Amino acid sequence: MNFEKAANFIWNNGRLLERRIFEYIFQGGSKNNILNAIEAYQNDDGGFGNAIEPDLRTPDSQPLYMEFALKTLYDCNIKDTEISQKACDYVSYHADLNTGIPTIYPLSVNYPRAQHWNNPLSIEPSFSRLTGLVGLLKWQGIKHPWLDKATEVCLNDISSKVYDDAHTILTAFCLLESLPQTDYVKGLFDKLSKELFEARFFQLDATSRSYGLSPLEFSPSPTSYCRSLFSNITVQDHLKVLEFQQDEDGGWQIEWEPPSEMAKLEWRACKTLKSLMILNSYKMIKY
């Protein structure tokens, strides 16, 4: 793995957000610079817009964007009360505790987007999407009058339904991680763990090149909440493959088609940064 080429790929193609995160992780940069970059995507309504998730190019706030922003803070282990309070205000206003929250809103059709966001289910309320947002907000440690009730409702949803999508399970684990590890929470952890290995878009096979979430998405560091789910051999196999997947230009490729060449480069910079962060956390990078 060539760290310098990967770094150059991020400098050439990454947005300010990815460059700030790279500085923070690898060059002693400022956490506040990351927060400033994230806030640039936050709209007056507390939601996030402006293509922070590069596959959708609308400036308007979308639950999809909210999840991307909060997951970015989670991946960087950054908690910020001001950003997350505004975010929680947005989610509490738009969510329905009986039906959930859509991934994207219908008017987003007026802007360029990747083909997979043309799925009509994307605009339907989703409880699993809400569970992920509540989990990421709860992880922030904020106090909000809506959040405790939402947490209770989402835990009931995890308990009573089968979660069959690896993306949903990933953020549901964030909710469990944010709570006291009672027998009840540990039981839900065991339930989600079993569902993960049968879930769509979960790639246990390290040699698979199709789109999906590998064990490294769930255990990006040796201290991750979900690290116990995977054997050392499984993690090492995926780390070796991840290292090998670096492209000649220094970046990592993606397995789907974004709406434009710019969006593709933005996504590749995101994936390159995440790959470096994972390899670094497992002490596989020298720089």
Rank of each mutant, 00 (worst) to 15 (best):
Asn12Leu: 11
Asn12Ser: 13
Asn13Gly: 04
Asn13Gln: 13
Asn13Leu: 02
Arg15Gly: 08
Leu16Glu: 15
Leu16Gly: 10
Leu16Val: 15
Leu16Thr: 15
Leu16Gln: 15
Leu17Glu: 04
Leu17Ile: 07
Glu18Trp: 04
Glu18Pro: 10
Arg19Thr: 10
Arg19Gln: 15
Arg19Pro: 09
Arg19Gly: 05
Arg20Lys: 15
Arg20Ser: 14
Ile21Arg: 14
Phe22Pro: 01
Phe22Gln: 05
Phe22Gly: 03
Glu23Val: 01
Glu23Met: 04
Tyr24Trp: 12
Phe26Ile: 07
Phe26Gln: 01
Phe26Lys: 02
Phe26His: 03
Gln27Lys: 13
Gly28Ile: 12
Gly28Lys: 11
Gly29Cys: 07
Gly29Met: 03
Ser30Cys: 01
Ser30Gly: 06
Ser30Thr: 09
Ser30Met: 03
Lys31Gln: 14
Asn32Met: 04
Asn32Lys: 14
Asn33Cys: 06
Ile34Met: 04
Ile34Leu: 07
Leu35Asp: 06
Leu35Tyr: 10
Asn36Asp: 12
Asn36Phe: 04
Ile38Phe: 00
Ile38Pro: 01
Glu39Trp: 12
Glu39Ser: 14
Ala40Val: 08
Ala40Cys: 08
Tyr41Val: 03
Tyr41Asn: 05
Tyr41Leu: 02
Tyr41Phe: 14
Gln42Thr: 10
Gln42His: 13
Gln42Leu: 14
Asn43Met: 07
Asp44Val: 00
Asp44Lys: 11
Asp45Val: 01
Asp45Cys: 04
Asp45Thr: 05
Asp45Glu: 06
Gly46Ala: 00
Gly47Cys: 03
Gly47Asn: 05
Gly49Ile: 05
Gly49Val: 02
Gly49Pro: 11
Gly49Trp: 03
Ala51Trp: 00
Ile52Pro: 02
Ile52Tyr: 02
Ile52Asp: 01
Glu53Lys: 09
Pro54Cys: 06
Pro54Phe: 06
Pro54Ser: 11
Asp55His: 07
Asp55Tyr: 08
Leu56Asp: 01
Leu56Ala: 02
